[in-house]
Design a protein around this nucleic acid. Structure first.
Lengths: 234, 234
DNA sequence: ATTACGAATATGTCTATACATAAACGCAGA
DNA sequence: TCTGCGTTTATGTATAGACATATTCGTAAT
């Protein structure tokens, strides 16, 4: 015998996901479900609150509860950690920091990040390599105003991304994925043909409004893809 | 004066996201928070349960509650609806169904979808056009066993994706994003140079284990990108 | 017909209490 | 030292009741 909370939740989810209760359909009132399942209102309320938080239903005082309209479609994609993937696959992983400098932010990046012109950024270019084959080229900006300790870090142990993830929390992220043809220098770095299609993932993070870091990862199109699985109720 | 529930939640979230409570840090017990905020345990419990459901904290009986390790990084990307975007931007949108047939599923697709060989699929190829410029080429398979009414649909009003989204609910989705060079026919369809980088988004959906549809969308790399914003607490 | 206002109602938040249960702890016995 | 078992403890689930508040609805006044 499962818990009542879970049973009610499963019942309602099943009805919504099977299409029996289409978007806009009014769900029984709390007191109706309460009678149906023979439980207290708090139990029903917690179930419905959870479903509302997950965006499956919409609740309004006095009006009642209805099945929510399908949200804008979205894809949830996993961003792989090279060291982790390599360990799992049993291959050798290493990285090389090709460039390191501290520079005032350029105009385009200032625009993207919302930082004032002239803010000092730590600029790093890193090549990720598995079994001697380049897997991705990473161009990263780190805001030294938010992460001053990055200045003294050598990035010998961990690549910048891993180092930051472990050290600096973030509250907001923005991602952009595009496809470009590799130019000459990029082709050389990634050991691919000039003009070959590459996947570019840009990721920017903030911490309570303060910009933390921007990473532009360029993956050879023939070697990499982004994958994600998603259930709206999970 | 905000609600107590929200205040407790904000306090804890702030401490976690600022790094004051690092991953692994033990959070005060329910009875401690209860005393600190002068409220009942149910109130504290609901806050912590919610945070646990969001993956910010990990709870274990008897052991207590700790800040969760940062999860695998993920990017949440919005998938645009052409008709909607066009209307918003004030440009003309139309689509053209270039191919339509009913065929038994081929071996590769059977592998991807987990369907038995020979299952009948409705195969559609659609070109999405805005202001006379091709924006994406869509190759779609629809499982007629799950969506028999697709057989009789003409797709004059709505393109297949929109039609399906409005009609057929789904419980699980899988997404793959990659980058490819356009081959001759694709370049011609999208009016781009042969070899130009294209973004390919594959999306497969299931409904309680039953395969619904697969869509492969090819976007010209110079005209399109996937964008997403994400807050772990929202 | 229109507007203003009060009553009805469904959800939102919170309390105090109760019992269940998983996991860690400590003690006793081998 | 190790093992097994009962105890303790923090969380998990649920209840019955209370009051708050946003909306809707019907009614009365304009």
């Amino acid at each position: 015998m499962k818990h009542l909370h879970q049973r009610i939740r499963d019942d309602i989810e099943a009805r919504i996901m099977s299409g029996e209760w289409a978007p806009g359909h009014r769900i029984p009132f709390e007191h109706e479900l309460m009678t149906e399942y023979g439980c207290s209102r708090m139990t029903v309320n917690k179930v419905l609150s959870t479903l509302a938080a997950n965006g499956l239903i919409t609740r309004r005082r006095r009006a009642g509860t209805v099945v929510a309209e399908p949200s804008n479609q979205q894809a949830v994609l996993q961003i792989q950690d090279f060291a982790l993937e390599a360990a799992r696959a049993g291959v050798e992983y290493r990285f090389k920091v090709l460039h390191r400098s501290i520079e005032p932010i350029d105009a385009a990046a200032a625009q993207r990040t919302g930082l004032p012109a002239g803010t000092l950024m730590l600029c790093l270019s890193t090549l990720h390599i598995m079994d001697d084959v380049p897997q991705a080229f990473e161009q990263r900006l780190i805001n030294l105003a938010t992460v001053p300790e990055a200045d003294k870090e050598t990035f010998k142990e961990d690549p910048p991304g891993t180092w930051l993830l472990r050290r600096v929390p973030w509250t907001d992220a923005e991602h952009i994925v595009r496809s470009v043809n590799a130019d000459g220098p990029m082709a050389k770095r990634l050991q691919i043909q000039s003009g070959a299609a590459c996947l570019v993932l840009e990721r920017r993070t903030w911490q309570a409004g303060a910009f933390v870091t921007e990473a532009r990862l360029t993956y050879p199109g023939d070697r990499h893809q982004l994958v994600g699985r998603f259930s709206p109720t999970a």
